[in-house]
Design a protein around this nucleic acid. Structure first.
Lengths: 336, 336
DNA sequence: TTCAGGGTTGGTACCGTTTCCAGTTTCGAT
DNA sequence: ATCGAAACTGGAAACGGTACCAACCCTGAA
């Protein structure tokens, strides 16, 4: 920049003014400076600008595990919005460990990010919540429930409603013994889905014969739980996998025991992935637009960076009916 | 920092020394400073440190599309290595557009990243190559071939060998009319796989009855190509999908036309995803350890950041045999 | 006793920008 | 012609650190 100033024979401050489109610059000077800039192939240093301006044009982004296709899609949506707004995204995985969440948030603070988009590993980790209360840049939560004091913007899907629709469909088909294999209760989507299941059964006025397998949203939990469910005296006639990894576990278990879908058991999964659509038979799913989820998260952040107030957005989750659900076996309800 | 210095009654420079573990500090001073740091909850500003030190501890990372599960897994591997080395990752998608690659690389330069990990949208985009030649921080390429002048480290999988093994297997089963649906020739893996196919056929000394559908590594191309192949007078008896998206397209086409795998046609896919393992029947795959690929990319970068020379690493790609390949239909070879 | 040298410490010049302040010029208006 | 405001420009002080240099104290050796 000093070189540019010398070449154009103006003060450094004038170069700065030209480059930042300050109103008070003569066209003569502008031309000279721009010519010098081109000649020297000068590009301003982002770092120094950030230091001086107090804005880094970067946002911190923490997710459990980017290698999960669902999360990857969300990330893709968020990244494209942030990118077109000139922001760059600092990606970190928490490996679903709340301690990492905490460390990453601290790290982002030191890095002076302008905002953060987070999908916490746990909503109940006190230290993280306390830390977040002290963060002074805008925060957006993806699919999480956090205390209002944090003044975070939140974007979520209506998992409860999606689950309600899915379960109603199963009930319509005559299923009563319905099992939900899901993750830990410290995650909002998990609680909402469990609530949705209860809602739907209660709305029907039927006795509750559902089973909920709480654990983690992993293939291992999916597989183990499926095995356990199948081994029950009166096994469920329909299983709902609480996530794409869980689904993978279920399918493995079914394959091992030669269980056919939907003849032997009906199957529904939460969240759409390649597998759900391309499986034979295609698997009914509680779907949501994950790209949109990411986009909205980024938009909410930009909104706040532009001076807006924090707000909560609820995006839909809809039930997509496919061939993986069949009528409940005769007698499965009568026996109840 | 000034406050800390005042509270501890030492010079600012001494605070800096204490915090950066300079050897020449008395334990007395160290204690006083650290106490002051704790009391004021002081945390050094990364930005200012970077500006002064000339290192940002951040690396730029460009991939085609993070929402592709394969890429997401690679990214996950790279991120975890970078993170434990104290680096953070600036993620950008090129949307498979070379122009974006170029823009992102420029952006990273302005951001003063310490290094870049790239998986270019095209190896043949001249402007990108020229730009890269001017980049003065270390570069690591993932699964790409670039001119040696660039002095980039490269990590790749041995797609050629993987493909050779896969095709040999098909040949053993009696297949001769083998089709490969793949992406554009400006990507190294694509060229390597095509070469592997030719290798295997030539090694057998059989006449070449293979078909290669060059296009893009997308579901659309997969689906369209499959339709075209099936419509041929003498359609292939085995199809190799050149990527996970292509595979999705193939499966859609098969499902629509009621084609059964492996009875009607044999199927192999490149790169392992949930779908390949969980499909009924499970799909033979040319597999590779993508997490390791990402890890190695990051390690190569760290190596260079530590002063090492650029080098090229070739990781294996192996053929995993599954139920999706059956014997060629009787007469399919005799007719040749 | 003197001196060299190592251990400590403070002062200060940067890193590359932005921005405030003040000075100079221009110009329309009186 | 004179004046004040507006347009323009340069100088310098930040932003929050790091690191070089010089000065100081102290110790062991000559």
């Amino acid at each position: 920049m000093r070189e540019v100033a010398e070449l154009a024979d103006v003060a450094i401050s004038s170069v700065s003014r030209v480059l930042s489109d300050h109103p008070d610059v003569s066209s003569d000077m502008r031309d000279r400076v721009l010519a010098a800039v081109r000649q020297l192939e000068y590009e301003p240093d982002f770092l120094a600008q950030s230091l001086r301006r107090g804005a880094t044009l970067s946002v911190g982004y923490v997710v459990g595990d980017i290698s999960n296709p669902l999360i990857a899609t969300i990330t893709s949506g968020a990244e494209s919005v942030l990118r077109s707004a000139g922001y760059s995204m600092l990606l970190m995985n928490s490996e679903n460990d709340p301690e990492f969440d905490e460390a990453h948030i601290r790290f982002f603070q030191a890095r002076r990010v302008d905002g953060m988009i987070l999908s916490l590993a746990s909503e109940r980790h006190q230290k993280t919540i306390e830390l977040l209360a002290q963060v002074d840049v805008p925060i957006v939560m993806i699919d999480r429930d956090v205390p209002a004091e944090l003044e975070a913007s939140i974007v979520r899907n209506d998992h409860r409603n999606g689950m309600r629709a899915a379960v109603s469909h199963l009930l319509d088909l005559g299923h009563r013994r319905i099992a939900l294999i899901t993750g830990a209760l410290e995650l909002w989507p998990v609680r909402e889905r469990i609530a949705g299941l209860a809602d739907a059964v209660a709305a029907r006025g039927a006795p509750d014969e559902t089973t909920t397998m709480v654990g983690s949203l992993s293939a291992e939990h999916g597989e183990r739980s499926t095995e356990q469910l199948l081994a029950m005296d009166r096994p469920p006639t329909a299983i709902i996998a609480g996530g794409n990894q869980v689904l993978a576990g279920c399918i493995v278990a079914f394959a091992r025991r030669g269980i056919r879908v939907p003849d032997d058991i009906s199957l529904i999964t939460c969240d759409e992935v390649d597998l759900s659509k391309l499986h034979a038979p295609p698997i009914s799913a509680i779907a949501r637009d994950t790209v949109q989820l990411g986009r909205t998260a980024a938009e909410l952040l930009l909104e706040r960076l532009g001076g807006g107030e924090p707000r909560t957005v609820l995006l839909p989750a809809t039930f997509v009916q496919r061939a993986s659900c069949g009528p409940a076996p005769i007698g499965s309800t009568a026996a109840a």
